[in-house]
Amino acid sequence: MIQMISYDLKKPGQDYETLIKEIKALGSSWCHALKSTWLVETVKSADQVRATLKARMDANDLILVVNVTGDNYSGYLDEEVVAWLRTHM
């Protein structure tokens, strides 16, 4: 399944490299679709993904994880993101 991860990181200048590494490690394939939005092909549920990532975030940061498995999507995106979507959704 494909999980869409979107977040707001509240503290400027914070190093979130660990969070990004954790996102990339969640599944077999990932795509950094927008500035704070990732798509990850994973066997984990939205709740499992949220719990895993929240442990790497500050207490005031926000996160949304949504299962977007399927072929119904629309957007204006970079070509590499469109190619990833065509391959994985």
Rank of each mutant, 00 (worst) to 15 (best):
31 C>H: 01
49 V>K: 00
47 D>N: 14
51 A>C: 11
88 H>E: 14
45 S>V: 05
14 Q>C: 14
7 Y>P: 02
17 E>G: 14
31 C>M: 02
19 L>C: 06
58 D>I: 01
22 E>G: 06
72 N>P: 02
43 V>G: 03
28 S>D: 13
86 R>V: 09
52 T>N: 09
28 S>M: 10
10 K>A: 15
74 S>P: 00
8 D>L: 13
48 Q>N: 08
4 M>D: 03
49 V>E: 02
3 Q>H: 07
63 I>W: 00
88 H>L: 11
50 R>C: 09
73 Y>V: 00
29 S>N: 12
43 V>K: 07
24 K>S: 03
75 G>N: 08
88 H>S: 10
39 L>C: 06
62 L>E: 15
82 V>I: 15
30 W>N: 01
1 M>I: 06
84 W>D: 01
35 K>N: 15
62 L>R: 14
22 E>P: 05
18 T>F: 04
66 V>F: 09
40 V>R: 03
42 T>A: 01
8 D>P: 09
57 M>A: 07
33 A>K: 03
70 G>I: 11
87 T>H: 12
81 V>W: 03
67 N>V: 05
75 G>S: 04
6 S>I: 04
66 V>P: 00
26 L>R: 01
16 Y>F: 13
3 Q>T: 08
85 L>M: 15
69 T>F: 10
3 Q>E: 12
82 V>S: 08
21 K>T: 01
40 V>D: 07
5 I>F: 06
21 K>I: 00
11 K>D: 07
88 H>M: 14
74 S>W: 15
4 M>W: 07
17 E>I: 00
13 G>A: 07
81 V>S: 07
22 E>I: 02
18 T>H: 13
49 V>P: 02
44 K>H: 06
41 E>L: 06
89 M>H: 09
81 V>P: 04
79 E>F: 01
34 L>Q: 14
74 S>K: 12
50 R>D: 08
84 W>F: 08
65 V>W: 05
71 D>R: 10
37 T>S: 08
5 I>K: 02
17 E>H: 12
67 N>H: 05
15 D>R: 12
67 N>K: 11
38 W>P: 01
62 L>W: 12
45 S>A: 06
29 S>V: 04
21 K>L: 09
12 P>Q: 03
67 N>F: 03
69 T>P: 01
16 Y>L: 14
4 M>G: 03
77 L>H: 03
60 N>K: 14
22 E>C: 10
47 D>W: 01
69 T>Q: 12
65 V>M: 03
4 M>C: 12
4 M>F: 08
33 A>D: 04
60 N>F: 09
37 T>K: 12
54 K>G: 00
82 V>F: 04
48 Q>E: 15
29 S>H: 11
38 W>F: 12
54 K>L: 06
19 L>H: 05
15 D>E: 07
11 K>G: 00
33 A>F: 03
46 A>G: 08
67 N>M: 07
60 N>D: 15
39 L>R: 02
57 M>K: 11
80 E>Y: 15
18 T>C: 11
85 L>H: 08
40 V>P: 07
7 Y>S: 09
76 Y>H: 07
83 A>H: 08
49 V>M: 04
56 R>K: 14
36 S>H: 11
70 G>Y: 00
44 K>P: 00
23 I>S: 02
